[in-house]
Design a protein around this nucleic acid. Structure first.
Lengths: 122, 122
DNA sequence: TTAAGTGTATTAATTCAATTAGTACACTAA
DNA sequence: TTAGTGTACTAATTGAATTAATACACTTAA
């Protein structure tokens, strides 16, 4: 289900995080569903278990999964909208800090956002 | 006019960039005004001229200043709004990428922005 | 043409954070 | 007890980032 490229400049655990977030956002992984164990996924991907653990910890810190020692890791049962919000919040925070520093108004900021999203595929 | 802390974890050239951006955004540095030469600022701050040059190059890539070899570096004469927009664009881009990945609507994104800026001082 | 002033290219030293893996430990459930 | 779960700790390694030394290139004015 997941793939990884050890030669990529993007760290392995970040590759995993991104794939799992996408899967959750698209509903391919559902609330309560159990993730493969760190050892299982690690042996499948031929990486160290700690690397998978790192990805799971990152996902847990962003509220995508819940981990129980000795039991396993499970997709969070929080509302998906809430989970997504938690995931994007840091980026919003960064943008707001810069906007503050430059004294850019909310209106201007919103216009920039709209334009940028129109230019991309979405 | 500028100060620098070599012990900070924030790179010296980034400290300079931030200070100069603030000064421009606040109108303390005006269009066309000449910046101190790299050697002059470097000797004032007791850093290597290349470090100041690096800051100036960063500022030029963000359209805050214009540099002419042999002449010096000058505050850009672009409209300040345009300059500020260029400075914030990369952050907007990042946010939009993540929003796309998570399928977050513009409306939700804007609401998050408003809330975040209300929470901060601005 | 010369001299003094400007920014910059190139190279290298150094530091430092990030990444990953090895190993041993801790918890859960049957 | 055993097999399965995640994790803490440590260390090796890599690689990017930062800074500095030095020499070069351009501009201006005398």
């Amino acid at each position: 289900m997941f793939t990884v490229d050890p030669k990529s400049s993007l760290p392995i655990y970040e590759q995993l995080v991104a794939q799992i977030i996408r899967a959750v956002a698209r509903g391919l992984l559902r609330s309560g569903e159990q993730m493969p164990s760190v050892r299982e996924l690690a042996s499948t991907l031929l990486v160290n278990p700690n690397t998978v653990s790192r990805a799971y910890q990152e996902l847990e810190s962003r509220n995508f999964i819940v981990t129980m020692r000795g039991k396993g890791s499970f997709i969070s049962d929080l509302p998906i909208e809430q989970v997504k919000q938690a995931a994007i919040q840091p980026h919003v925070q960064t943008l707001c800090s810069v906007a503050d520093e430059l004294s850019i108004s909310n209106a201007d900021l919103y216009q920039l956002l709209i334009q940028t999203r129109e230019d991309s595929s979405c």
